[in-house]
């Protein structure tokens, strides 16, 4: 949470000064009038208005302030879209030169996402997760993983043998678990230690 206190001739002016200092709009702010202005006589006994504005930092804004300079320096010209979901923010970038920001199997993207979450966590009391996407990579990865999960599940049903998938990030493992949680014939569990933790798909035994 940040706050600013300003004085000016009118409440409105003081408010604008404080908002400008915090770099936010009125819709993101709460304010308190500490002192009402008094005009006095010929300037005698006059008092300026005093206002305190507070704001709960917005996670998406902190995230973008963190990411923008990094992407710019890497020569990426990108536009960004933010979606606020129940318990996380989905921030996606599309633009020139963005493909390489993904990295091999998304490792650079994951590194950036890790850093942005730390930066957000440090600056906010409430810490929503940030999921960072570039060029729709995570979206298509989600679909690929869901398809993989179903394919492997079928194989497990057919052969009765456990199958261990390659190491994945927690988010990617979650996609596998979610895809198969309703499946009546197989179950999933994670084994091993980060960052080599992997999902195992096994046949349910009754």
């Amino acid at each position: 949470m940040r706050s600013a206190e300003k004085t000016a001739k009118t409440v409105r002016e003081a408010l604008d000064l404080a908002l400008a200092e915090l770099g936010i709009g009125l819709e993101d702010a709460e304010y308190e009038i500490l002192e009402m202005p008094k005009s006095g006589i010929w300037g005698l006994g006059s008092k300026e208005a005093r206002v305190r504005v507070t704001t709960e930092e917005n996670a998406a804004r902190v995230a973008i302030a963190f990411l923008e300079p990094v992407l710019a320096k890497l020569g990426a010209k990108a536009t960004c879209a933010v979606e606020e979901k129940e318990d996380f923010f989905w921030i996606s970038y599309v633009g020139e030169n963005m493909g390489r920001v993904i990295g091999r199997r998304g490792e650079t993207l994951n590194a950036l996402q890790y850093l942005v979450n730390l930066a957000v966590g440090k600056n906010l009391t409430k810490k929503p997760r940030i999921i960072l996407d570039v060029e729709g990579y995570r979206q298509s990865r989600t679909e690929t993983l869901a398809a993989l999960a179903k394919k492997v599940a079928n194989k497990v049903k057919r052969t009765g043998r456990d199958v261990m998938l390659e190491p994945m990030s927690p988010y990617e493992r979650r996609i596998i678990h979610m895809t198969l949680q309703e499946d009546a014939f197989v179950q999933t569990l994670s084994q091993g230690e980060e960052p080599a933790r992997r999902v195992v798909i096994t046949k349910k035994r009754y």
Binding site: K73, L74, E107, T108, A111, L112, L115, L118
Partner: peptide, 14 residues
């Protein structure tokens, strides 16, 4: 070393 590793990963792009 996860943070250092992540910063290095970003540096690799440059």
């Amino acid at each position: 070393g996860r943070v250092a590793k992540s910063i290095r990963m970003v540096l690799k792009l440059a």
